[in-house]
Amino acid sequence: MNGIVITWPQLLYLGLALILFYAAELLLFLRKARSQALPREWRRRHAELEEELATLRSEVEALRVSLAAGAHLHYAAPAAPPVAAPEETPYAQAIRMARQGADVEAMVRECGISRGEADLIAALYRAERQG
């Protein structure tokens, strides 16, 4: 009787090989499932955008028909919130003073800018007043 004899260590190696094979198969299956999940999300988002586009097209067509029929649409833009007047910067204040003819010392004292900056602003706006 010549049969196949399998020892315990050989059976253990065979079992480990089968476990590794099934683990590799599981990893491949999970990778494939993950790669297909993202396009499924894209398809769902694409369907939502197609629906929104169809709605917008129908609204535009309705507006086109009403304009062609001579209907006057009264659209009131939403009122903008009141904008607070911005604080006048030291340089804007110095420019205003230079246009009014103030001297450099007054600009340095009231605006808190350097003497060189005040000289430059005064020279620029002096030329504007003269020319």
Rank of each mutant, 00 (worst) to 15 (best):
R109L: 04
A54K: 02
L53D: 15
Q130N: 10
R31E: 11
L67S: 10
Q100E: 13
I6R: 14
P90I: 00
R109Y: 02
A123Q: 02
A24Y: 08
F29D: 06
V104D: 00
A33W: 10
I121V: 03
R43A: 15
P81N: 12
R44C: 08
C111L: 00
E61F: 09
E52T: 05
L73R: 10
V65W: 05
A122D: 01
L11Q: 09
P82T: 11
L73H: 15
A54Y: 00
P86K: 05
A77R: 09
W42F: 11
V104P: 00
G15F: 03
Q36C: 08
H72C: 10
A85H: 10
S66D: 12
G116A: 13
H74R: 14
A102K: 03
R99D: 05
L26R: 15
E128C: 04
A118H: 01
R115G: 01
A33K: 15
S35P: 03
L28T: 13
R115Q: 05
P39K: 07
L124S: 05
R57I: 00
P39V: 04
L30M: 13
V5W: 07
Q100S: 09
L38S: 12
L120T: 02
Y75K: 06
A127I: 05
G101N: 02
V65K: 14
L14F: 12
P39D: 06
Y13P: 02
R43W: 10
V104H: 00
A54I: 01
H74A: 13
M1W: 07
R126S: 05
A106V: 06
R99W: 04
I6L: 07
E52S: 09
A106Q: 11
R31W: 11
P82A: 15
F21G: 09
L67H: 14
L14I: 07
L20W: 09
A84M: 06
I95G: 04
P81Q: 12
Q93N: 09
R40Y: 11
G131R: 12
P90E: 01
L16R: 09
L26D: 14
A23C: 11
S66V: 15
M97G: 01
A106S: 13
A71K: 12
E128L: 06
R96A: 06
P39C: 05
L28I: 13
D119W: 06
E105G: 05
P82K: 15
L11Y: 08
T89L: 04
A92L: 13
A98R: 00
A84K: 12
A92T: 08
P78M: 02
Y125N: 02
Y13N: 06
A33S: 15
A71V: 12
R109P: 00
Y22L: 11
A92C: 11
R64H: 08
L56Y: 05
G131Q: 10
V65R: 14
Y91T: 08
L26V: 12
E61W: 07
R126Y: 02
D119L: 09
A123N: 02
V65E: 10
L67D: 11
A68M: 08
Y75N: 07
